Simulated assay, not measured.
Amino acid sequence: MSDRHTAPQSEKKPFLYVVVCAAGIAGDVGKLITAAQEAHWDVGVVATPQGLGFIDATAVEAQTGFPIRSAWRLPGQPRPLPPADAIAVAPATFNTINKWAAGISDTLAVGILCEAYGFGIPTAVLPYLNSAQAAHPAYGRSLARLREMGVLISSYEPHQPAAGGGADLFRWEEALELLTPELAGGG
């Protein structure tokens, strides 16, 4: 009865990379991980080197079941994460957004983002910065460049400088809201 052995197999879950940058709200990344897991994603976290200091690495690794990536792997080392089906950059800082748009691949996190374009991996970004940073001309140009590249950008409005950060207005789940139609449309 080979039909029994060809019964529907459990489908492979899509794999989401969450790129975490050094921002005050980064410690809440578990909210996005939980939302993604509830939406049947497997999740791996890639942190900028500075972003590592803003998250509880032990808790994040326990929640995802995967090691956090932050540095390039050495030749011959296995890949600790499966390939990404989609990427969410949350929170995305002024620095990371500008480096990514300019193609400055000086960290693993930004390197992955730069390559995602060439691989056609759907990518959503949830900027988190203050209005003084957002006023800099490079920021607007960087967002325009990312939009030209097909990056999906959240609706978060920059918060006032030194005003506590606007964490209550940051919608972690917006990353999934942006990516879901992209993936359903054959992306």
Rank of each mutant, 00 (worst) to 15 (best):
G120Y: 02
L16Q: 11
R79P: 09
P75M: 05
D56G: 01
T58I: 12
V46G: 03
Y128W: 15
A109D: 04
A88E: 03
L152Q: 09
A116I: 07
P14T: 05
A138D: 15
A92R: 02
G27E: 04
R79T: 13
G140R: 14
E177Q: 15
G165E: 04
G53M: 01
P75E: 09
L129I: 01
T93V: 01
R145Y: 08
G30H: 12
S154T: 00
P8S: 11
R79S: 12
A135D: 11
A84Y: 05
A101I: 07
T64I: 00
V89M: 06
Y139E: 08
Q9P: 10
Y17M: 08
F66I: 09
R69Q: 09
S131E: 10
A162G: 14
N98M: 08
S105I: 03
L146M: 09
S105N: 11
A62H: 11
Y117R: 14
A59C: 09
L129R: 07
L143Q: 09
A59Q: 06
C114H: 06
L143E: 09
S142P: 09
N130M: 12
V125Y: 02
A162E: 15
L126G: 00
M1K: 13
A109M: 00
G118F: 02
D28I: 11
M1D: 15
A47S: 07
A39D: 11
R145Q: 15
A184Q: 12
A163C: 14
E38V: 10
G166H: 11
S105D: 14
S131R: 12
P82L: 09
S10T: 15
H40N: 15
T107H: 10
P83R: 05
P122K: 01
A184N: 11
S155C: 07
T123K: 03
V151H: 06
M1I: 13
P137H: 06
L143K: 10
S155F: 11
G185R: 14
R73E: 04
P78W: 02
A92C: 12
A184V: 11
E173L: 02
P82A: 08
V89L: 05
P122W: 05
V20T: 04
G30R: 08
F119G: 13
V151L: 00
G111P: 03
A116C: 02
P80W: 10
E157I: 12
R4A: 14
D3E: 14
I25A: 13
A26G: 02
A135P: 05
G76K: 02
L113V: 07
T34P: 09
S70Y: 08
P82M: 04
R4Q: 04
C21S: 15
A138T: 09
A22E: 06
P161S: 13
P91V: 08
D42L: 11
I55H: 10
G27W: 06
A135E: 08
I25N: 13
L143D: 04
T6K: 13
D168L: 13
S154E: 04
T48L: 06
G187Q: 06
T64G: 03
V110I: 15
L81F: 00
R145L: 13
W72C: 11
